[in-house]
Computed example of a mutant assay.
Amino acid sequence: MGQISMEISPPNGSLLSGNQQANIAKCSQDTALRDIDDLLGKKILAKEAAGGRSTSYVLAGTAA
Rank of each mutant, 00 (worst) to 15 (best):
G52Q: 05
K43W: 10
N12C: 12
G13V: 00
G13T: 01
N12M: 14
S28R: 02
G61K: 08
L59F: 00
I24Q: 10
G61W: 07
A64I: 11
K43F: 14
D38C: 04
D35W: 02
M6P: 04
A60K: 03
I36G: 08
Q29S: 09
R34Y: 03
S17E: 09
A50P: 11
T62V: 14
A50H: 14
A25I: 06
A46H: 15
N23Y: 02
Q29P: 05
A50W: 04
A50R: 14
I36V: 10
G13I: 00
Q3S: 05
I44C: 05
G52L: 05
S9C: 15
G13P: 02
Q21R: 00
A22P: 13
T62I: 07
G61V: 03
K42L: 12
K47L: 14
L39C: 07
P11N: 12
I44K: 05
C27K: 10
A32W: 00
G41H: 09
T55K: 11
P10A: 10
G61R: 07
L45T: 14
M6F: 14
A22K: 10
E7P: 07
G18H: 00
K42C: 06
K42D: 10
N12H: 12
A63G: 08
Q21N: 01
S5F: 04
Q20N: 01
I8V: 14
A49V: 07
T55I: 11
M6R: 08
I8C: 11
K42T: 02
G18L: 03
T31P: 03
R53G: 15
